[in-house]
Every structure is written in structure tokens, then in C-alpha cells.
Simulated scan of single mutants.
Amino acid sequence: MKKLLLTVTGSVTVLILFVSLFSLNQTNQTLENKLSKTENDLKTMEKLIKQDTQFNDTVANQKKLTVIEEGLRTYLDYDNDTYLTRFEHLQNKATRETIQYLKELSSEEPPLLDIKNQLQELTIYLHPTDELTYLVQLTTEYSLDYEVVSTLPQLYQVTLIETNGEYKINQLINLGLTATN
């Protein structure tokens, strides 16, 4: 009887152990599946965050490049009629100090002869360490009395300032003429 009782007790214990192991194995498998799904979700979120960051960087860079190009076109594309008004059109593209500096470089009266300055080519180079400073290589064509008198390749350093997510030209330095072929 003792043997039978020990055998039954042992069998029940072994049976309980097997059921417990099976249950633990199922629980472990469920937890591993959940962990795997969570890790996949995390990887997906990280990819989305990286894409969002790249998109935001691209949008910000496009805004900067647009401000530079539009600002230089506004400043450098002029004729007798727009000689003075171009500075008013720079209001959204450059800081007040920069506009004042550019005005000081120009005559306060439009020229007496018919003139036209037109931006022909423009290439913007990113600064390797300063995300708000750019080098701009451009070519302008200057006409006097409707005849082209010069085509000038020039190099500018443009520094932007950011205010509330908007960019403006904060500094515009003409670094001089560039060599041509």
C-alpha cells in the first residue's frame, strides 16, 4: 500500500511537473513572440523617426537654399525701375541690417543711363561645418543702354539666421570675382 501510495504520489507529482513545464513553455513562447513583435515595432519606429528626421532636414535645407537663391535674385536682378525697390522686396529674405548694408553699397538714385543687371547662373555650396553658412558662385550679366558690357563670375559668402523656423540672410559678403575658362 505504501508502495502504491508512493507510486501514485510520485506519478501525480511528475504529472504536475510536466503540466507545469508545458505551461511554462507555452508562457515562455508567448512572451518570446510578444518580445519579438515589440522589437520589430521598435525597429519600425526607429526607421520612421530616421525618415522623419531626414525629411525635416531636407525641408529645412530646401528652405535655406530657397531664401539664398530668392534673396540673391532679388538683390542682383534689377534695372532702372527696380534699382531702389529691390531693397523693399528683400524684407522677407534678409535682415534689416543686411538690407541697410547693401543699400549703403549702392547709389541712392537710379542711374541716368538704361541699365540692367541679371543673374545668369547660381551654384550654392554647403559649408562643411556651419549649417547656416554657404558659398555661392554666380554669374551676372550687366547691360548698359541695352547692350551687354560685362559678364561677371562672382563668389559670395552667405550666412543665414533662423528665427522661429524661418531663415533670412544675415550676412552677404562678396568675396570677389572668380576665374573663368
Rank of each mutant, 00 (worst) to 15 (best):
G165D: 09
V136E: 03
N80M: 08
M45S: 10
N80V: 06
N80T: 10
T38Q: 15
L152R: 04
I99T: 04
V67Y: 06
T53V: 06
R86M: 04
G165W: 08
N92M: 02
T159L: 01
H89E: 09
P111E: 13
R96Y: 12
K47C: 03
P111W: 08
N40E: 13
L4W: 06
E147F: 03
T180I: 10
L21E: 09
Q100E: 13
D114H: 05
K43D: 12
L126W: 04
Y142W: 05
N80D: 14
L4S: 11
L21S: 11
K93M: 15
Q154V: 03
S150P: 01
S106K: 03
V12W: 10
L126Y: 12
I161M: 08
N92W: 03
K93Y: 14
I68A: 04
L119P: 00
Q154W: 02
G176V: 05
L31K: 15
K34S: 06
S143E: 14
L72F: 05
E104C: 03
T123Q: 09
D130M: 05
T13F: 13
T133L: 02
E70V: 01
G71C: 10
Q62S: 13
T44V: 06
N80G: 07
K50H: 10
I99Q: 03
F22Y: 13
L113W: 05
T129F: 06
L155P: 00
F87L: 07
S36K: 15
S150K: 14
K2M: 08
T140A: 03
L6S: 08
L42W: 06
Y75M: 07
E121N: 12
K63F: 11
E97Y: 09
N40R: 12
L31Q: 12
V136H: 00
T178P: 01
I173N: 14
T85Q: 15
V59H: 02
L76P: 02
V148R: 04
T159Q: 15
Y101H: 08
P110L: 05
I16Y: 08
D52L: 04
M1C: 06
T139S: 09
Y142S: 04
Q51T: 10
T123W: 05
L138H: 00
E141D: 07
L15S: 15
V149D: 01
V149W: 03
